[in-house]
Amino acid sequence: MKPSIFGYEAPTTLEAAISLLAGDPDAMVLAGGQTLLPAMNFRAANPSLLVDIQHIQGLRGIAVGSDAIIVKAMVRHREFELDEEVKRANPLIAEVMQHVAHIPIRNRGTVVGSLCHADPSAEMPLLLALLGGSVVAQGPSGSREIAAEKFFQSFLTTARNHDEIVVEARFPLLPAGAGWAFDEVTRRHGDYAVVGVGCVLALHRSGRATGVRIAACGIADRPIRLKDAETILNGTTLGPLDLDAAVAASLVAVTQPDDTNVSQSYRRRALGTLIRRMVARAAQRAETVA
C-alpha cells in the first residue's frame, strides 16, 4: 500500500517545528522514519503533515557527562552503539543496541525516535526504564524533563504532548563496579522481543547484592521495572531460593495476552528464565566493592 496524502515541512529551527505541530493536531514528527514510514505505507499512521527535524541545529550529538549520557534527537542507533566513550561509560548500552533490529535500520533509525514510538517490546524504552533515565521535551510553554517511569504510559503512548518535541534523552552511567546484562527471546534475530530482560547490580565484599535493578519488555503495555524482584534480591547472596522468590514475584507483571506467536504462559516461562540468567551474568561482571 501507499500512504495517504500528506504535507511535508523541513524547518531549520526548533521554534518553527514546534509551531507547525501546534498548528495541526494531525501533524507528526519525522526523524529517522524507520517505524513511521512503514506505518504510513500500511495506513496505520495517517498524518496530515510530516515535520522533518533533521535540519534543525542542536539536535545532533552525544555528550558523556559526570552522571549521564545525553543523546540528542537526531542521533542514530548505530552512532550510539559504536561510540567508544559511551561504551566505557555504560557498556550495557552497546550490549542492548546489538539486539535493535538490523544494522541498515540502526543506520537510519534514531534513539529518541524509538523512545517516542514506545513499543512495549522494543529495547530502547526498556534501557531507559532500567537505568532510571529521562527525556527532555520542548514545546510552546518551554522545556520539561520527564522521567522514564512517567514517560511510557501505555502501548505506543507517552507523556509527550502533541506540540512537544523530545529534544534529548538522558541515560545514567553505570554505578562504579556494577555488573550488567541484557538478553531477549525473539522469533528471529532483529525482531521485536517476545520477552527481554535487563539487569544492573553491584556486589558488596560480603557477597551480597546491592543496587539491584531489573526491567523487562514484551510482557505488558510498556517497559516494566520489576521492583518486587529488586526488593527481594537486594541484600541477598543471589542464591537459588532468592532467585526463585524473585521470579515468582515477577510473573504477575506479565499482562500481555496470548497472540499469534506465543501464549502468556510462554512469556512467563521466558521471563523467569531470563531473570535467572541476567542476574547471574550481571553478578559475574560486577566488581566486589566495600
Rank of each mutant, 00 (worst) to 15 (best):
K150D: 15
F151S: 08
F152S: 09
Q153L: 12
Q153C: 01
Q153N: 07
Q153D: 03
F155S: 02
F155C: 13
L156V: 07
R160L: 13
R160F: 05
D163Y: 03
D163E: 13
D163Q: 15
E164F: 12
E164C: 06
I165C: 11
V166L: 09
V166P: 13
V167T: 15
V167K: 11
V167D: 10
E168M: 13
E168F: 07
E168I: 09
A169M: 08
A169F: 11
A169D: 05
R170P: 02
R170K: 15
R170H: 14
F171V: 11
P172F: 05
L173Y: 08
L174P: 13
L174C: 10
P175M: 08
A176H: 13
A176V: 15
G177A: 12
A178M: 04
G179S: 03
W180V: 02
A181R: 10
A181T: 04
F182G: 04
F182C: 10
F182Y: 15
F182L: 04
D183W: 07
E184L: 05
V185C: 14
T186P: 04
R187S: 08
R188G: 05
G190L: 10
G190P: 14
D191M: 13
D191K: 14
Y192F: 15
A193K: 10
A193V: 12
V194C: 06
V194N: 06
V194R: 09
V195H: 10
V195P: 06
V197K: 00
V197L: 08
G198Y: 04
G198M: 04
G198L: 02
C199N: 00
C199Q: 00
C199F: 01
V200A: 02
V200K: 01
V200M: 02
L201K: 01
L203R: 10
L203C: 04
L203V: 02
H204F: 03
S206E: 14
G207Y: 09
G207R: 00
R208Y: 00
A209D: 01
T210W: 08
T210D: 00
G211W: 00
G211P: 01
G211R: 00
G211L: 04
I214Y: 06
I214K: 06
A215E: 06
A216Y: 09
A216T: 00
G218L: 01
I219T: 03
I219P: 05
I219N: 03
R222F: 08
R222E: 10
P223W: 04
I224N: 06
I224W: 08
L226Y: 09
L226H: 09
K227M: 12
D228P: 00
T231D: 14
T231L: 07
N234T: 15
G235E: 10
T236G: 04
T236C: 03
T237H: 12
L238D: 02
P240R: 07
L241E: 15
L241K: 12
L243V: 12
D244S: 13
D244N: 15
D244F: 12
A246G: 10
A246H: 04
V247A: 08
A248H: 13
S250R: 13
L251Q: 04
V252T: 14
V254Q: 07
V254K: 11
